[in-house]
């Protein structure tokens, strides 16, 4: 194993070091890396959008195949640019209204199904749960956890009677849930750092396999 001879690996390694230099404080090298990243990302986005979408899915059907059905969404899309003309800028609300109406309309049944109905179904007792004593126990614990956490989030009434200890139990479940998320977050951040150090040690310096 030896140090990289490919010039592009060196470019990648130096840019990696530019970003790592932020650990010593904000500095020109970091800023150059940061700004290059933004520019290159936008350039990449433009290229992919053109080759993957605008040309095959809009230019070809509209101008080469003469598919008139594409005129309406194109006009709606072009209305986004009305924002640059103060007198006509209100027209931007038309495509926005279309997009928001569509987004809201499709999301209601989808969210209802995936995140409410299916999740309620998952919280119901099944024969599979009843097959083992430990699964019954953990099922009961989960159910108590779900109910108590929901009670904790119910702020419309003063917590009195049973709702007070229930909400407190809800906090316990929430804290364990947040703890699990934190543990996983540590894992994620460390993994990303390892990935970059692997690049420097393997691809650039050739120290490791």
């Amino acid at each position: 194993m030896a140090i990289a001879t490919d010039l592009w690996i060196w470019v990648g390694a130096l840019l990696t070091l530019f970003i790592f230099s932020f650990l010593f404080g904000d500095n020109p090298l970091y800023k150059i890396g940061e700004h290059v990243y933004v520019g290159v990302s936008v350039g990449y986005f433009i290229s992919i959008t053109w080759h993957n979408f605008l040309y095959p899915d809009l230019i070809v059907p509209l101008f080469r195949q003469g598919n008139l059905l594409y005129i309406i969404p194109t006009i709606l899309g072009v209305l986004y640019f009305s924002i640059f003309f103060p007198k006509l800028s209100w027209l931007i609300r038309i495509p926005m209204g279309f997009v928001l109406g569509y987004g809201a309309g499709v999301s209601i049944p989808a969210v209802l199904q995936a995140n409410i109905i299916k999740q309620i179904q998952g919280s119901l007792l099944s024969t599979q749960v009843l097959s083992r004593w430990d699964s019954i126990l953990w099922y009961v614990v989960s159910l108590v956890g779900i109910v108590c956490t929901i009670i904790y989030f119910f702020f419309s009434r003063e917590r009195k009677g049973i709702s007070k200890p229930a909400a407190e139990a809800g906090i316990v479940f929430l804290m364990v849930g947040f703890g699990a998320s934190f543990g996983y977050t540590v894992m994620a951040r460390v993994s990303l750092l390892i990935g970059r150090l692997q690049f420097l040690l393997r691809d650039w310096l050739g120290i490791i396999k």
Binding site: G103, A104, G105, S107, I108, V111, L112, N115, I116, Q119, G122, S123, W138, V141, S142, L143, V144, G145, I146, T149, I150, Y152, F153, G170, V172, F173, L174, V176, G177, F178, A180, S181
Partner: peptide, 23 residues
């Protein structure tokens, strides 16, 4: 168990919030 319970309860809240906002 506990993480799943907490996340499901949050999920219910988020889903209801999304539906309400969409409406």
């Amino acid at each position: 168990v506990p993480n799943m319970a907490a996340k499901r309860a949050i999920l219910f809240g988020v889903a209801l919030g999304m539906i309400a906002t969409s409406l």
